[in-house]
């Protein structure tokens, strides 16, 4: 029998992996991909909870839908800025962002 706990555990593992990726990746595109994993981890938790604990409103699955919208919007702005970074530095490595100092 699959329980809510299984889904939450999967979501937690996925979130931990995403967090790991955000911290260790040294390419901005890869960092943004890791953020996508984080968002999907949350979406899984929402969708599963809706099916198990929120039989009337099912708002969790609605939330999961909105998370996809948010993810797409975030990526489009993120990539637009990334293109600007690339235009100025010729690279998408995180190092170019790290070196700013006053």
């Amino acid at each position: 029998m699959i329980t809510l706990g299984h889904f939450l555990a999967l979501s937690a593992v996925l979130f931990a992996i995403g967090l790991f990726g955000v911290i260790t990746r040294r390419n901005l595109i890869a960092v943004l991909m890791s953020v996508e994993i984080l968002l999907n981890a949350a979406a899984i938790a929402f969708a599963a909870t809706a099916a198990y604990k929120d039989p009337v409103f099912f708002s969790g699955q609605l939330f999961a839908l909105f998370i996809m919208v948010v993810a797409a919007a975030e990526l489009s702005i993120g990539f637009a800025i990334l293109l600007n970074v690339f235009r100025h530095t010729g690279s998408a490595a995180t190092d170019v962002v790290e070196e700013m100092r006053g």
Partner: peptide
Amino acid sequence: AIPILTLFIIMTTQSRRIRPA
């Protein structure tokens, strides 16, 4: 959609390898 967009950006910025942290 998102992976395709990502691949597109990867091509544009000519990123291939990620140097390990």
